[in-house]
Structure formats: structure tokens, C-alpha cells
């Protein structure tokens, strides 16, 4: 069994604020926001992170696992420092997201769902990000890039390499 994880003091304060949003008898409602918090802390939600969330809510870890395994946004394995997700649903497909994905894949030398050997980048596809008028779009970590072309991909990557 891996060592139990514990939230930092700062994260525990944020967790308390999150729990405050729901009536005291419905603490379980905080599970998704708390899983987001855990993912911010540790990059992915391991079984230990789920157990940590379960302790805060006061439920069994399997209840948290049931939720964490449903939602695509929760990484259950470590991911790269930067997660790049190319939107590939119909409107972005009509505006050429295919070439954006292929270009990224070639530049990074990885395929769908893979992480570069140096742990810097993970490549994903995403479904409609509700910015279809500005496609193709690319979500880089928390930031949305619009009107993305292969040339713009190069700029974004250069920027990330620097940062």
C-alpha cells in the first residue's frame, strides 16, 4: 500500500470552502470539486488521492472511485506537464482540426493519449469545447487557443518550451 496522501494546509482551506457550499447533510455533493482540487495538487487522482477526498467527505473510498472513474477530466495516471487537447467534433473537423492534430503528433513524436518520454507533453483529443465559431480549437492545460493552424501550433509549442 502506497503512503497515504494528505492535502496541504492551503488546499485543506479551499476544501473547507468547497464543502461549505452544500448543506451539511449532503457533503458527498462536493466530490467532483474536491477531485478537481486533488488533481490540481497531484496532477492526477491516484487511489491514495481518492482516499484523501473520501476522508474529507466522510464516505468510503470506493464511493469516490465510482465518481472519479466516470468523468473523462480526471486523470487516473500521471500526465505530462502540459496537456494538449485538440477538439475533433464536427464543426472543428469542418474547419480542419485533423491537420492540427497530425502536426502536433508529428512534432511531439507521440500518438493519441501518449506522453513524451521527457514527461513534458500529453496529446489528447477533446469533444466540442463550445467555441465552434473559432475553430480549430486547442485546449492547452487551462487555456483555450482558437483559430489554430499548424503554424500557430509551432508558436504555442515554442512558448511552452520557454515557460
Amino acid at each position: 500500500m502506497a503512503t497515504p496522501l494528505e492535502f496541504t494546509e492551503a488546499a485543506r482551506e479551499r476544501a473547507a470552502k468547497i464543502l461549505d457550499r452544500y448543506p451539511a447533510e449532503y457533503r458527498k455533493s462536493a466530490v467532483v470539486p474536491l477531485l478537481h482540487l486533488a488533481q490540481e495538487e497531484w496532477g492526477h487522482v491516484s487511489p491514495e488521492a481518492m482516499a484523501c477526498v473520501a476522508r474529507l467527505i466522510g464516505c468510503s473510498p470506493v464511493k469516490v472511485a465510482e465518481i472519479a472513474t466516470f468523468y473523462p477530466m480526471f486523470n487516473r495516471e500521471p500526465v505530462g506537464e502540459h496537456v494538449l487537447a485538440v477538439c475533433h467534433t464536427l464543426p472543428c473537423a469542418l474547419t480542419g482540426c485533423g491537420s492540427v492534430f497530425d502536426h502536433l503528433s508529428e512534432k511531439l513524436g507521440i500518438g493519441l493519449g501518449e506522453t513524451t518520454a521527457d514527461g513534458r507533453f500529453t496529446l489528447r483529443k477533446s469533444e466540442c469545447l463550445a467555441a465552434c465559431d473559432r475553430g480549430p480549437v486547442l485546449l492547452v492545460n487551462r487555456r483555450l487557443h482558437t483559430h489554430v493552424s499548424p503554424e500557430k501550433v509551432d508558436e504555442i509549442l515554442t512558448e511552452l518550451e520557454k515557460g
Binding site: 449532503y26 455533493s29 466530490v31 467532483v32 477531485l35 468523468y71 473523462p72
Partner: peptide
């Protein structure tokens, strides 16, 4: 939410909010 389209359906949304 956390990336699931079905949470837009009103009762899916409620279940999601209930945890």
C-alpha cells in the same frame, strides 16, 4: 462538471450535483 456531456441532461445534472 468534469467532462461528461450527459451532465447537461437535467436529471443527469442533478445526480452529478448530488455526487
Amino acid at each position: 462538471g468534469a467532462g461528461a456531456y450527459i451532465c447537461g441532461e437535467e436529471t443527469g445534472l442533478i445526480e452529478s450535483l448530488e455526487g
